[in-house]
Nucleic acid binder design. Structure first.
Length: 405
DNA sequence: AGTCCACAGGAAGGGCAGGCGA
DNA sequence: TCGCCTGCCCTTCCTGTGGACT
């Protein structure tokens, strides 16, 4: 067996001329000192929250905008500044930030409250208590707090779709029940039509102020990327057109700045690994497919066994390149899925459940499931793959290894 | 205009795993 | 260990629906 030397790998790496000098600046966790093209929103939110500096309750606000439009960044930026200022003025201000999408942290009423307790420095069990009890703990913890409390609920649409709006209703009641604590809620949502899904009372008390974050266009994205590249990538290491390409690709995807930053970062990493002098447009292309692949792989890894089996069934169907070109319908998937389960001696689920799983796979962007009506022959979903065949085959292979089909 | 197909998808609840306090 | 709680995955039962067919 040939002995390969890690020492060699490390030395080789250290010999290369690094492309980045501060890669952190190209990640979402980085908060830049200035946020281009969001001046209006920063000012608007600043005006709303400034009332906290006089010890008054800021209006509840709702922030809308699709992914990567700077909602979270702007909110955190304004809140940080507010916190700083309130310290100078010796005012009581507490800001609790929760990302409602984080699995196992805040995707249920109980977990959200437990998390709020936790970041409010109150220890509660992660599970085991009645939800009422956890409400009591949280309310007790803030009932005597004399000051302004701002709760930021990021991805609030996820929360409401999973657990309903009861929790929001209960939170908005705090101001009536407690005299000292002045609570303001900032809801951040990717879904523009989301507020229509809420109870009218919750909606009216939550949306006292509304801010809209429009998607960035390609020119604005270029601007943002140039600014970030300056503080993260060594001079002269980006080929002309790379930043523009990242911007253009991301502008197509609803003006998502996060995506643009990821593209540039991953392209840089790829170029660095190949020991290239400059990041090229070709690296951006490779980065694009790598990001898609990683996203899908991560999504599939966390899926339950039955989801994997169903996805396996669907991919197997498209693998056969017979010229029938027939559409795959829910009923077909179910039949094929049942025979697969019988073949490998697995328990199988009902069609009702399968229907839900197909919806989930659709939402994950792995398949397209369009509802169609075939008139006399019923109403069903037409299923196709939303990912390249090559990626699908790779996924199938990994499910195969995982489940030993 | 009415029928009927093949589902979609809502509602309610079961069973199990896992965590907690007593 | 037991009882209680939540989360997750699932089933059962049900109503709703778009459009080809009669």
């Amino acid at each position: 067996m040939s002995q390969f030397s890690l020492e060699g790998v490390f030395n080789e790496y250290l010999k290369t001329d690094p492309i980045f000098f501060n890669k952190q600046a190209l990640t979402i966790s980085y908060t830049p000192s200035n946020i281009p093209h969001r001046e209006r929103q920063i000012k608007q939110l600043g005006i709303i929250l400034a009332t906290a500096l006089r010890g008054e309750r800021p209006s509840n606000s709702f922030i809308y905008g699709s992914t990567g439009t700077g909602k979270t960044l702007v909110t955190q930026h304004v809140c940080n500044a507010l916190e700083e200022k309130s310290k100078q003025l010796n005012k009581n201000l507490k800001i609790l930030y929760v990302n409602c999408k984080m699995k196992r942290v805040s995707d249920t009423e109980y977990r959200l409250l437990a998390y709020l307790c936790e970041i409010n420095k109150l220890e509660v069990p992660k599970t085991g208590l009645a939800t009422e009890q956890i409400y009591k703990y949280f309310f007790d913890s803030i009932s005597n707090y004399d000051g302004v409390l701002i709760i930021i609920l990021d991805e609030i649409d996820e929360l409401v779709s999973k657990v309903g709006d009861t929790i929001l209703y209960n939170l908005t009641r705090i101001n009536q029940d407690f005299k000292k604590c002045k609570l303001s809620i900032i809801g951040i949502s990717n879904n523009l039509s989301f507020s229509n899904e809420m109870d009218a009372r919750v909606k009216s008390s939550l949306s006292e102020e509304e801010l809209i974050f429009p998607p960035y266009n390609a020119v604005q994205l270029t601007d943002i990327l140039k600014h970030r590249a300056e503080i993260s990538i060594n001079k002269g290491r980006i080929e002309d057109g790379v930043i523009e390409k990242c911007s253009a690709l991301s502008a197509q995807e609803h003006g998502d700045a996060r995506r643009a930053l990821d593209l540039l970062r991953v392209a840089g990493e790829l170029a660095e690994r190949k020991n290239k002098n400059k990041i090229t447009e070709e690296d951006v292309d490779v980065a694009q497919s790598k990001i898609d692949r990683d996203r899908i792989n991560d999504a599939i890894k966390t899926q339950p066994k039955q989801s994997k089996l169903i996805l396996y069934t669907i991919i197997s169907y498209f693998e056969k390149d017979d010229d029938e070109n027939q559409n795959l319908l829910t009923g077909d998937v179910y039949d094929k899925y049942i025979s697969l389960c019988k073949k490998i001696k697995q328990k199988y689920i009902t069609q009702r459940r399968l229907s839900d799983i197909i919806s989930e796979l659709d939402m994950l962007g792995i398949i397209n499931a369009k509802i169609i009506s075939k008139g006399r022959y019923g109403r069903t979903r037409e299923i196709s793959l939303a990912i390249p065949l090559s990626t699908a085959f790779r996924i199938k292979k990994s499910i195969n290894q995982d489940l030993e089909i």
